[in-house]
């Protein structure tokens, strides 16, 4: 178990290091930063001044090491546009994005797990086909479009939910549904496939031969084994939701990390962009690690590996 943990942690650290390098290089690849910071009306002297002031005249590796050293101490630089520490900006908005992601994941699991199990138990009947059709429609629906439709129906026509902002928990419901919709199809298919496999297995036949109740057979014996791939994908989906919330946060005017990214990209605020990419990527790495740990908890065979 300790070896498994150590190995997973090592892999996570390696990925994190790679992510740091890539997110640094990406901003440098997008043209001369000094020119974009100085603005469209700047003279050649201004640009040179900016270049020196921000240390952009130094060799790339030195800039990189400097940035890494600061980032490791939690100093992600200063925003040119917001005139604030980038770390503060992100800390302020991260809770909003995280809440949104968690609400989305909870809705997705609440829909995908029961429907996936139902489809598996009723494999190849009309129930199964209806559930899979819903999954297909969900997969084909663009999230910004679904967001707008929900706003019109639930927000404007029925007036059940607020259509934008972050004032209360109700504000998270609609964007949560939209985010969940993109994750439901894959989670549902995976649950269904896993359950079909599990239900056809020898140990389920044993469980039936033992005269266990239907609930115990389905949930304790089948779902426990079918859940292993679902957990991995759920963690990855949460990562997608957090990263993909840029569109949703913009549509619903939720001032989270995604909204911040959108603003700073349009303002050429590269320290913020760089930091957002880094933070989201690190969360992703963290989630993958968490999924590995959950899997180890679910599957005793993994703990020995």
């Amino acid at each position: 178990m300790a070896r498994f943990l150590l190995r997973r942690l090592l892999v996570a650290l390696l990925v994190a290091a790679t992510v740091m390098t890539v997110s640094f290089l990406l901003t440098r690849l997008s043209g001369d930063l000094a020119i974009s910071i100085a603005g469209p009306n700047a003279t050649q002297q201004d640009v040179e001044l900016v270049r020196r002031a921000y240390g952009l005249d130094r060799p790339l590796w030195l800039q990189y090491l400097d940035w890494v050293a600061r980032a490791l101490q939690g100093d992600l630089g200063e925003s040119y546009f917001f005139k604030d520490r980038v770390a503060n900006l992100i800390a302020e908005r991260l809770p909003i994005t995280m809440s949104l992601g968690l609400v989305g994941l909870c809705i997705a699991l609440a829909v995908a797990l029961p429907l996936g199990i139902l489809a598996a138990v009723r494999e190849n009947t009309w129930v199964d086909r209806a559930v899979m059709l819903v999954a297909l429609i969900g997969q084909a629906m663009p999230s910004f479009w679904l967001g707008l439709i929900l706003m019109i129906v639930l927000g404007l026509r029925l007036g059940w939910l607020p259509i934008s902002g972050t004032g209360s928990w109700q504000h998270y419901v609609m964007p949560g549904i939209v985010l969940a919709f993109s994750a439901i199809p894959s989670l549902m298919r995976l649950t269904r496939a896993g359950m079909i496999d599990a239900l056809a297995s020898d140990y389920i036949r044993t469980a039936r031969a033992k005269g266990l109740s239907r609930l115990s057979i389905l949930v304790k014996h089948a779902l426990r084994n079918a859940a292993i791939p679902v957990v991995s994908i759920a963690a990855v989906q949460l990562g997608f939701m957090l990263g993909g919330s840029i569109v949703i946060e913009t549509v619903f005017a939720l001032h989270g990390v995604g909204f911040l990214a959108w603003e700073s990209i349009s303002k050429n605020d590269f320290p913020v962009v760089q930091a957002v990419v880094l933070v989201l990527a690190l969360i992703y790495v963290g989630l993958t690690l968490l999924a590995d740990l959950l899997n180890a908890a679910l599957d005793p065979r993994l703990r020995a590996a």
Binding site: S201, D202, Y203, R205, T206, A207, A209, H221, R224, N225, L298, D299, P300, R301
Partner: peptide, 13 residues
Amino acid sequence: FQEPMTSLNPSYT
């Protein structure tokens, strides 16, 4: 059953 290798649930003691 015939298949002792797969007849026990791998997830439980």
